[in-house]
Structure formats: structure tokens, C-alpha cells
Write a protein that binds this DNA or RNA. Structure first.
Lengths: 203, 203
DNA sequence: AAATATACTGAACAGTGTTTAGTAAAATCA
DNA sequence: TGATTTTACTAAACACTGTTCAGTATATTT
């Protein structure tokens, strides 16, 4: 049955074409500024067609979130190759913040936007995120084992570092740093990262 | 001219009635879930009437943001009475996080929601925010002066602490802590606060 | 009493997400 | 082959959104 195979392939291609157009538009105009009709126009199909491939706008959103999670994963991946856990942790943090600054729209999509997080489509995205987080906690644990920290509570240390990095990126992404001059914002952020690292060392 | 005075008072009352209804609805259904028509219905006026008191939905949003900022200010205010800067800083941080947990919708409005931040109405809100931030930085400076920190860079210390608190609250508010069991989330957050305080002490 | 200013509204416009009935084309069956 | 079913798609509608504007009834001033 070569036909049904081709059909399935075509269906998958169409799905990808929709996602591509959506991600493209989204990175151009922000998530709120993209409508089903926009996407439909971009791929030269009727709006109703999109509903043959995605249940609703939420499910399209979940799929996009998954794409973003994959891009983030690839951005952080090189850290995993670093042997020394402390150096790995440093590199990981730097890459996390760098991802946020380089792809504010994707960071937004992953960590800031309010959306129901319980759809099936989103499950695998969440799995990927949890995996990355586990890798992070494991690295912290490895640092504990090598006596880089005094505290032995890996969960709390990891969460504390994550809070800092997330706060840093999201204050930047959502433009809540107006009390600092524009050119100082990114500098201050990186200084703060250096500071939290030094603080962590003494913990 | 008693009439024009009364008119002005009535106009202000109407403005307040709109804001009250909007804030009420917003805290019930989230910001995205509130429409001009909803608000109009709540105060039993036509949607067009709202546009006689606010230029557009954004300006209504700014006014709400100002209300939220005021509530936050009152929530943090008691800290100012504490003499010792270190104790004041601790209390301030605790109150900041507590505000976020108790009023996630208002926190959202103030620090997370994406919106143009340059309208006139928003100016005074921003002024209030900057004042609070200045108070925070001054407290950090007072701690530096009393040798509670080793570092002398008040800006970076303040920003680092703010990043942590904001990251903590916004991960909670935007439900990005799914990898931890629900009952552990708030506990972990407060543990993390304790940890950053201890870290800061050794800085 | 007439003219003007004020406060408000109904109806419309262009946009949104989503559903449904219907239509051509493709694949399958006889 | 020709008839039938399945597939892929769309036009049109529904109920919503923010926003504007012509029109109206009341209150104030002349």
C-alpha cells in the first residue's frame, strides 16, 4: 500500500508547513499578534484547513512549544560534554541565559506565557523539559559530591539557581528593567550571574 | 460654581466604578478573560461609555496597573519601619514573595504581562515602582555600610536578589514548577529564599 | 423658551477562534 | 470500465473581541 504511505507523508508535511509558518510569524510579530487566519494566509489555505491538523489554537501552541523546547535543548546540549561538574554548571547557566537573550520570543513561549499545560501534545514537550531539569539537578548533585557546595540539598540549590536565571531572563524579556539605562541592562544581568556563581561557591 | 464641581466629582466616581469593576473581574477571570463588554455589563452601561473615560483598553490597563502597584506598596510598606537594614531587607523580601503568592493576578499585571510601558497613565505607576526599587537599593546600600555584605556593588546585589525573588514568584505564578509535587512548591520556594539569604550573608 | 453642552447609546466595522454544510478530486469497489 | 465511497479542502456562518461614530435625551446656560 504505497498510497496510504504517501498520504500519511503528505499529511505530516502539511502539519510541518503549518508549524513552520506559525513559528515564523510568531517570531516576527509575537505570539499574541498571530491569528489562525494569518497562518492560513501564509500557507495559502483556508483557516478551516488548520483545524484538520490541529484540534484548536491551543494544540498548535503546544506543538510550537515543543519546537521551542527542542531549539532550547540544542542550545544547551554542548554543556553536557563538559567533564567537570562545576564547569558544566557554569556553562549550562551561561547558555540558559544566552538562550533567553537570543530568543526572547521562544523563552516567552516556554516559560512565561499563560496557557493550559495539560494537553497530550504538550506532554512530550514537558517530558523534554523535565529531562533537561533532571540533567541540571544531577549536575548540581555532582557538584555537591565533589564538595563544590557546602549545602547538600541539591533540589533547593538547583531551584535557587534556576529562580535566579529565570528571573534575570524574564525581567529582561518582559522589559521590567526600565530603571536601568538600556546599555546597562545586559551588562548588569551578566554581572549578576557572576555574582550568584561566586555566592554559590561560598554556600 | 458648585455644578461643575459636582460634575467633576461624578466623572471621577464613574472612572472609579469602571476601575473597580475591571479589577474585580480581572481578579476573578484573569486579565485575558476580561473584555470591555464584560466591564460595561458589570456596571450596567454600554461598552462605548468606557471609551469616554479611557482612551482604549491599554489605558484602562495602565490604571489597573497603578491600582495593583498601590496594593503592592501597602503590602511592602511595614518593612520601612524596621530599623536594622539587614532585618528590613529580610522582611522586605519575605513580603515581596508573599505578595506574589497572595495576589498572583496582581503580580502578573505588574511584572509579567506584556504591554506597552510608555503611556502617560503608566508614568506615575512606574514612578511608584522606581521609588520602591530605590528604597530597596538604599536598604542594600545600608547593609553594605554596616558590613553585612563583603561586596560593595549595591546595584548588582539588589538586582541579583530581585532576580531571585522575581524568578521564584513568576515560576510559581505561571505554573512552571510541575516537576515538583504541588504541596512541595511553596515549601521549596521559601527554602530557596532562606538559602539565598544565607548565601547573601557570605557574600 | 431657545440654544448649547453633556452623558450616553445603538449600530456598525474589522478583526478573532471555531463549526458546519457542502464540494471537488482521489481512491476503492463492482 | 463506471459507480461509490473516502479524502482534502473551503465558503459561510456564529459568537465573540476592541473600537468608532452618528444620533438622542437630558442638563445647563443664555
Amino acid at each position: 500500500m504505497g498510497i496510504s504511505e504517501r498520504k500519511e507523508r503528505e499529511k505530516e508535511e502539511m502539519r510541518q508547513r503549518i508549524l513552520e509558518a506559525a513559528l515564523h510569524l510568531f517570531r516576527e510579530r509575537g505570539f499574541e499578534g498571530v491569528s489562525i487566519r494569518n497562518i492560513a494566509e501564509a500557507i495559502e489555505y483556508s483557516p478551516a484547513t488548520i483545524y484538520l491538523y490541529f484540534k484548536d489554537k491551543n494544540e498548535l501552541f503546544y506543538a510550537l512549544q515543543f519546537e521551542a523546547m527542542d531549539i532550547k535543548r540544542n542550545h544547551l546540549l554542548p554543556s553536557a560534554a563538559i567533564e567537570d561538574p562545576w564547569e558544566r554548571l557554569l556553562d549550562f547557566g551561561r547558555r540558559y541565559i544566552d538562550f533567553g537573550f537570543k530568543h526572547p520570543d521562544l523563552y516567552d513561549l516556554l516559560f512565561i506565557i499563560k496557557a493550559p499545560m495539560d494537553a497530550l501534545e504538550n506532554q512530550q514537550c514537558w517530558t523534554l523539559g523535565v529531562a533537561t531539569h533532571s540533567f541540571f539537578v544531577e549536575t548540581v548533585q555532582a557538584c555537591i559530591d565533589k564538595r563544590y557546595f557546602k549545602s547538600t540539598d541539591a533540589d533547593t540549590i538547583a531551584y535557587t539557581l534556576w529562580c535566579h536565571a529565570h528571573g534575570l531572563v524574564s525581567l529582561f524579556v518582559r522589559e521590567r528593567m526600565r530603571m536601568y539605562p538600556p546599555e546597562k541592562r545586559e551588562v548588569l544581568a551578566w554581572q549578576s550571574y557572576e555574582m550568584i556563581i561566586k555566592m554559590a561557591q561560598t554556600l
